[in-house]
Design a protein around this nucleic acid. Structure first.
Lengths: 159, 159
DNA sequence: GCCCGTTTACTCGGATACCAAATGTCCGAGTGGTCCGGG
DNA sequence: CCCGGACCACTCGGACATTTGGTATCCGAGTAAACGGGC
């Protein structure tokens, strides 16, 4: 799985801890975790394309959350970065076998494919069951100073 | 996910349909689905290292199942091919943050990491809940001629 | 005919190329702020 | 002092390198069978 998933989730949390009326630059968000700025920008673009963030160019521009964290599941973020395809992609090897037929979609009929799909479905269900708001609440419960510290760090780095 | 997982599972099923007292060559198993022989050999080696297959060199050598299908879960095959690592590998980006500490294992404490791990756990649980014997039974129920046809195909290709 | 040593052909196993995708970087289009001149 | 326009700095967005891992291939070590000669 791509590295950008982790970056995207943490950056979304940071965005949630900032005043939502001001946009945050990709460069600032990258500096917070010492990440390559241009590459994080690429990931944030993916989030924007997925409708999770909104992007505004020009001075005072940047990224901000497109909707409240309660409406952003972990699956949303993963899908935005990794794409909608399944991790296990059935290449329909049965078609090349001696009994293979061209008019059959083995992604549906092959029992191995079905089992793998079922497992990924369980994975997706778990991810869809947790929102970033849940994560945010857990973090604030474990270390209540995080929101204030994060805001202050970005304010100090405004220079 | 690697292509080899699909190849490995189908090849294990084919091995199960053959007389288990004779080993089957990687080249024959590859020819059944028109796969690159040397590359399938590589995947079968991984299965052998994982203890799923046993390999014997020399003439009349090849691969055979190391244990009955009932004791081979889909997770076993996936782990053998993909390795034991998680798909989502937490790079502990929090450590590089302003509040990051070197003596903390963020793979354990980070709530994002926990959530992703929980989802993968559900995925693994689904895979571990199904054995190749279950798949084999489903196939034989859907198309009972498969075992005989497979045996005959390999017998005909013995030349 | 039977046994044993040699040859031989066949298999896995790992070392070696190749290629696609993830990772990382750079520059241009576009926007909003800012500054300056005029009223 | 207030307003309008031009300039400018800043940001995203996509196009362009680089590196890593998956894909594919080839050749050697080792083994068991087969063969031939001797008893």
């Amino acid at each position: 799985m791509s590295e950008g998933v982790e970056w995207a989730m943490h950056s979304c949390l940071n965005l949630a801890w900032l005043d939502s009326d001001e946009a945050m630059t990709a460069a600032r968000l990258a500096a917070f975790y010492d990440l390559p700025p241009a590459y994080l920008n690429k990931q944030l673009q993916a989030l924007a394309r997925a409708g999770i963030l909104t992007s505004t160019p020009g001075p005072r521009g940047g990224f901000r959350l497109a909707r409240p964290l309660e409406q952003i599941t972990l699956l949303d973020v993963v899908t935005a970065i990794e794409g909608p395809g399944d991790a296990f992609r059935c290449e329909q090897v049965l078609r090349k076998g001696p009994e293979g037929r061209d008019d059959v979609d083995y992604r549906k009929s092959c029992f191995i494919s079905q089992a793998m799909r079922q497992a990924e479905l369980a994975w997706r269900k778990e991810l869809a069951g947790q929102t970033l708001a849940d994560i945010k609440a857990k973090v604030e419960r474990a270390s209540p100073g995080t929101p204030r510290a994060t805001r202050e760090w970005f304010a100090r780095r405004r220079s």
